[in-house]
C-alpha cells in the first residue's frame, strides 16, 4: 500500500512521530569550543555516550545504544581506512558526515519497511588553530548542519533552540568557562525536555517547553545536583595541547572537581 505516494508520505510522517517520542527520555549533548580545545558534555547512566572517532574527532550521541554503536562503527571504519590510505589530514568531519553517514541515515529513515536509526549525532572537530574548530550534527532523518563555537543535541528542535539561545551570547575562553556553559545548557535542555514530557506537549514542536522561561543559574544547578543522584557527568576534551596525534581525552573526576562550579564539585565526591 506504500506504493501510493500519499500512503508513503503518511508512513514517513508516522515514523517521524514515533522517532521524536523515542528521544524524549534521552540525555542532551552539548559541544563547546574554547581556547584549550573542544569540550563535549552529557550526563549518562553508566554507558558512555561520548566517544573518540579519530585524532581530532569526537562524537556525542542520543538514541538507541545499538543504533549509536552501528553508526559509531561506520564512522570509525571510514575514518581509519581513509586515514591509512590517504592521511590523517584527509579525515574530516564534513566528509564523514556528508558523504558517509547522512545518505545511510536518510535511506534508512525513508525505507518504511525497514527500521530507521534511532540516533542523533554530534561530531566535534578540532581545528589546527583556535577559532577553526567545528561541529556537525545529524538528525535521525539524515539532515545535517554545520556549526562553529557550539552545538547541541536534544529531544526536539525547540529544546535545542532554547539551549542555543542560552549559548549564543556567552563568551567562552577557558576550559572552566566551557564546562560551566555546557552544564548550564545541558540543564536547560533536560528541564525543557522533562517539562514537555510532563505537560504532554508534542515533542516535535515542543510547545510545552517553549512556554517555559529559562531558569536562573541556582535552579539549573539544583536540577543538575538532582540528576547526579542517578547519572554521572561525562566530559571529554579534544585537547589542543596534548602531545602526539590523538587529541581526545576524558576529563576524570579529579579534573572535573576543579572545573565544575563549587556546589557541583562537592556533589561529585
Amino acid at each position: 500500500m506504500y506504493e501510493e505516494p500519499y500512503r508513503w508520505v503518511e508512513a514517513v510522517g508516522n515514523r517521524r512521530q514515533y522517532l521524536d517520542a523515542q528521544f524524549a527520555q534521552g540525555s542532551p549533548v552539548v559541544g563547546v569550543s574554547c581556547d584549550q580545545g573542544i569540550l563535549l558534555m552529557t550526563m549518562s547512566k553508566g554507558t558512555p555516550k561520548l566517544y573518540e572517532i579519530y585524532d581530532r574527532l569526537a562524537l556525542g550521541g542520543m538514541g538507541h545504544p545499538a543504533d549509536l554503536e552501528k553508526l559509531r562503527f561506520t564512522l570509525l571504519e571510514m575514518a581509519h581506512v581513509e586515514g591509512f590510505n590517504r592521511s590523517a589530514s584527509d579525515v574530516t568531519g564534513s566528509r564523514l558526515i556528508k558523504y558517509g553517514i547522512a545518505p545511510v541515515v536518510k535511506q534508512a529513515f525513508e525505507e518504511v519497511f525497514k527500521a530507521p536509526f534511532i540516533a542523533k549525532l554530534l561530531l566535534g572537530e578540532l581545528g589546527q588553530k583556535a577559532g577553526k574548530d567545528g561541529f556537525l550534527t545529524i538528525n535521525y532523518d539524515g539532515v545535517f548542519e554545520e556549526k562553529n563555537r557550539y552545538a547541541v543535541l536534544a529531544a526536539s528542535s525547540s529544546v535545542e533552540q532554547r539551549m542555543v539561545e542560552y549559548l549564543r551570547p556567552q563568551s567562552c575562553v577557558s576550559l572552566k568557562d566551557a564546562v560551566d556553559l555546557a552544564i548550564h545548557a545541558w540543564a536547560i535542555g533536560d528541564r525543557a525536555q522533562r517539562h514537555t514530557d510532563d505537560t504532554g506537549g508534542d515533542p516535535k514542536d515542543g510547545k510545552g517547553s517553549s512556554d517555559q522561561p529559562v531558569a536562573d543559574s541556582q535552579t539549573l544547578m539544583t536540577h543538575i545536583r538532582q540528576c547526579m543522584q542517578g547519572k554521572s557527568i561525562e566530559c571529554v576534551l579534544l585537547d589542543r595541547h596534548v602531545a602526539g596525534t590523538s587529541k581526545y581525552r576524558t576529563l576524570g573526576s579529579g579534573e572535573l572537581e576543579t572545573l565544575l562550579p563549587k556546589d557541583l564539585s562537592s556533589a561529585l565526591t
Binding site: 572517532i53 585524532d55 570509525l76 581509519h80
Partner: peptide, 16 residues
C-alpha cells in the same frame, strides 16, 4: 608501522 599505528588506535577507539 602505519598499519600498527592505525590498528592500535582503531582497537582503542572501537573497543573502548
Amino acid at each position: 608501522v602505519r598499519i600498527l599505528e592505525h590498528s592500535f588506535k582503531y582497537y582503542r577507539r572501537t573497543q573502548l
